[in-house]
Design a protein around this nucleic acid. Structure first.
Lengths: 338, 338
DNA sequence: CGGAGATGTTACACCGGTGTCACCACCGCA
DNA sequence: TGCGGTGGTGACACCGGTGTAACATCTCCG
């Protein structure tokens, strides 16, 4: 039988019933060390009986900080965004933090104003920035200006370690292309991501590194650029497969484009992997579900997101958490030996 | 030169500088009608100059309600979850609401406790429940108990209209199967969703309806059940394609399973759509990217999510917004005439 | 000219927590 | 016995908004 007629019990209810002051209840909630064991137990009993849960808004007001962490992203790939959300959740579950999402439109001219309004209005504790928008330095500067701590996820070298959780795409691509080389491929095409994206640049560097290490010369005839979409993958595939001699393998900078290359190959009557081996990047849902299932590179998304969230909410622990992750090569069925 | 040394300006700063009381500033913010025009302008000028933005936590505390709406979901399909997030955002953009997400694990025994803790702790304004977890009546009851308004997305008949935004799956499946019938197919297999899911039941009813309307008898030999995963789609496909006579078309209750059927067909050396037509449901990213691209049924996810969000935050407008949506058939290349 | 109403504004308590500081009881020690 | 130190607790202001009721003005009208 709570006193409050409709609402939830408050700290005052607990204090009154337990016969102590609000402050003492507050101390119990916050596990203050200088507190008599008997008092603590008494108060805890009342809390349990009433089912009291502190009001986060009141707490936020008094502490002048809140417990919302924001996720700002434009939509690179649903699988990835969701993986990130789950990674973050796994870090904040059982804490008082909650995750607020804010999809934005990278290409919109008032994207920055939109984010500014969002941050000013909600007064978030901190935000996480996802690729590709995490590569936008203006956004990071905005966070800095507004005093919102942030962590960017992305490819290496985007920011100082304090604000960064990155995968080493360059090295991952080296691994993938070397995998093709080891299977006897010497003529390996490359579909790059759009210019201006660091991830794209990193991946291109990986391609260069791997070929150089294998002693294979670059050939512009079997290199093309896309913008990470299925359609541009088809176009790139058509270009590369029209080259002569035709490449026996193609590495695409993401799975969507790899699927496009596969599509292009099919249209030309080529079978995969017999006539053409394909490797993608990202391990999107698509990768596992196209035919043949795509060999691809997978970011350890969840682990990265979790590390990023920890870095955000607990800087003391952050130093221990890694900032750089190496991706795995997921072997499926789109590669054959040459 | 604001008075506040580090923090953002508060309503007190505005009041002091404008030479009015806090309450008057509050009235300006809230567009109170009984307010002198001159005063309003004076205060607004100060607000603009200071870049004052009201503190949502303080507001939430004073109003005894906050402006966070929650999205609770287990992970049916990334594309869909993201579509929902964007739909909700399109409804709350430019309002003071924000979207808090909470992925949960449907199969976990303490899912309910987890959600309860979440709701009690965060004191959300309201929540949206996504399929498949939206079909869980205990969850709805929990929201009711905690006094959190909720809206469920799902198939028809899940709840009263006040708490429901639904697609009429049954009718949509009728449309899809009839589409096959019109192309001359008489032997049409069916892969059902898992027992216990209303969406699955609705879709099965649609299949029955359509066959009945076409005067075709049900044949258990070409009906199977899966649990919405790719793997169970393969198994179902193998069963149906082993029947004799073999079906010339198969409708699968979601795209993952349709992709599985396609996979099974391929393993048996059948080509799609020449030897077998396939129709899926959901229009997942997979659907457009497998080969051949899958003809499927698409929920108007974003529109539904937007309607649901409006229903949540603005019940007055909700009556006007539709609660039931009809899905579209997306024609791609996985169906041929028999 | 005085009072009822409308209009615009303010003072003040309150929402539910936390920080500060005073205070009390009790200890050991000179 | 007096005194400083320490563990434990409470009174009270404060965080930044909103609701309430009271208060000034300024009509309008008898």
């Amino acid at each position: 039988m709570k006193k409050a007629k409709d609402g939830k019990p408050t700290i005052n209810d607990v204090a009154r019933i337990a016969g102590v002051s609000k402050k003492t209840v507050s101390r119990v909630i916050n596990r203050s060390p200088l507190l008599n064991e008997a008092t603590r137990e008494k108060v805890e009993a009342v809390i349990a009986e009433l089912g009291y849960v502190p009001n986060p808004q009141a707490r936020a007001l008094a502490l002048r900080r809140n417990f919302l962490i924001g996720l700002i992203h434009d939509n690179p790939n649903a699988q990835m965004v969701l993986g990130v959300q789950e990674g973050i959740l796994s870090a904040i579950r059982d804490t008082e933090f909650a995750l607020v999402v804010r999809p934005v439109n990278r290409r919109s001219p008032d994207m920055l104003e939109d984010v500014r309004a969002f941050l000013e209005q909600q007064r978030l504790f901190g935000v996480m920035l996802l690729p590709p928008i995490s590569e936008n330095d203006d956004l990071a500067a905005l966070c800095e200006e507004l005093g919102v701590t942030y962590v960017r996820m992305g490819s290496a070298h985007l920011d100082e370690d304090e604000h960064l959780v990155a995968s080493n795409d360059r090295e991952a691509v080296v691994k993938a292309v070397t995998y093709l080389v080891e299977r006897g491929h010497r003529r390996i095409g490359f579909v790059a991501g759009p210019e201006g994206f660091r991830s794209a640049a990193e991946r291109a560097l990986g391609y260069h590194d791997a070929l150089e290490a294998a002693g294979i010369a670059l050939d512009p005839a079997i290199m093309a650029e896309g913008n990470y979409t299925f359609e541009t993958g088809i176009a790139a595939g058509e270009k590369l497969l029209g080259a002569s001699p035709r490449p026996s393998a193609i590495f695409a900078s993401n799975d969507e484009m790899a699927a496009g290359v596969l599509h292009a190959a099919r249209k030309l009557g080529l079978s995969v992997p017999e006539d053409l081996s394909i490797v993608g990047f990202d391990d999107t849902a698509i990768a596992a579900h196209i035919w043949p299932p795509l060999t691809t590179v997978r970011w350890p998304i969840q682990a990265m997101a979790k590390a990023a969230a920890i870095k955000l909410i607990d800087p003391s622990q952050a130093r221990k958490a890694p900032s750089h992750f190496l991706s795995d090569l997921i072997e499926r069925a789109s590669v054959a030996s040459a």
